[in-house]
């Protein structure tokens, strides 16, 4: 919650910037900025590592100039950080974060097919920069089949050579049932949405946050398990809860959601160490700007 004020200020500044730029930009260049900040509460349950308190922030900017009528370039950057604290930390890292570039393209393959490819080269670890071990470059490939204006299908693939699951497929769909209801089953945030008006929307949804990180060379020594020095950890969490989305300006959407995190794991799969957190409530705020 401490991050709520900077989040609000940053969002306000970007909204102002977007309102200024909207007047001079054209359809040939689009920009997107996403900022999300959330907190997962701790509880008194001390089994295992108990419930890890968490603060997370994800900031992402992408500029997308049009190269041809069917091809858009995507260039940008992202920073995401999870910081954790638990009653008994064990092998729990204090923080996992990544800073990466985004290089990719959107392409219209055929009348009804669109595709997106994003390479996300960067540093994935705790950013102590102990060497090249933390450098990774996950690849995201997605395709959309536009069946109609009411129904679209999505196919995705996440390729990360460092992960325990180097290739992860995904399937999704968006179905606008009627004027108010939309079943928006797109990973990582599948939702059932209800439009109250053109500006307000409520939803019941899930959120998946995941990543593969490399901890530093002394991490194991500091946490009583030398095997974990420089180990690779797959982090994943699932969030479930209702949310509210408000289109403040045509360019800017604010979101707030709260709910439960029923499942969180830190899997040092190459060393056979797996940590689970107990379920806990969460709160998340977001700001999405498109111009």
């Amino acid at each position: 919650m401490k991050r709520a004020v900077p989040l609000g200020l940053l969002c306000a500044a970007l909204t102002l910037l977007s309102a200024t730029l909207a007047g001079v930009s054209s359809a040939a260049v689009s920009q997107e900025f996403d900022l999300e900040s959330g907190a997962v509460a701790g509880t008194s349950d001390n089994r295992g590592i108990g419930t890890a308190r968490e603060l997370s922030t994800d900031m992402r900017y992408v500029i997308s100039p049009q190269i041809t009528n069917d091809l858009l370039l995507r260039v940008g950057a992202e920073w995401e950080r999870f910081s954790f604290a638990a009653p008994r930390t064990g092998a729990l890292p204090d923080a996992l974060q990544h800073v990466n570039a985004i290089i990719g393209f959107d392409y219209q393959l055929a009348d009804q097919w669109l595709m997106r490819t994003e390479l996300q080269p960067g540093v994935y670890g705790d950013l102590r920069l102990t060497g090249w071990r933390e450098v990774d470059a996950p690849l995201i490939i997605g395709a959309a089949y536009l069946r109609s204006d009411d129904l679209q299908w999505f196919f995705g693939l996440r390729i990360d050579a460092r992960s325990q699951f180097p290739v992860l497929p995904a399937l999704g769909a968006r179905w606008q049932v009627d004027e108010s209801w939309t079943l928006n089953l797109q990973l990582p945030q599948p939702r059932l949405e209800y439009g109250i008006s053109d500006k307000h929307l409520v939803y019941l949804g899930a959120g998946v946050k995941a990543g593969t990180f490399t901890v530093d060379e002394h991490f194991g020594n500091d946490h009583g398990n030398p095997r974990l020095n420089g180990a690779t950890v797959d982090y994943a969490e699932l969030r479930l809860g209702p949310g509210w989305s408000w289109k403040v300006f045509p360019t800017t959407t604010l979101e707030a959601e709260a709910g439960y995190v029923p499942w969180r794991t830190w899997d040092f799969f190459d060393q056979g160490v797996l940590l689970h957190s107990r379920p806990a409530p969460y709160l998340q705020l977001g700001c999405h700007v498109r111009f």
Binding site: A27, V29, L72, D111, L114, T251, R290
Partner: peptide, 23 residues
């Protein structure tokens, strides 16, 4: 006018759906 705020892939998708409708 709302299309002014629609860019990138979303605009491409909007155009693709429009083409389907007209076809």
């Amino acid at each position: 006018p709302m299309l002014k705020y629609l860019g990138g892939l979303e605009r491409m998708a909007y155009g693709a759906i429009m083409i389907q409708e007209v076809k």
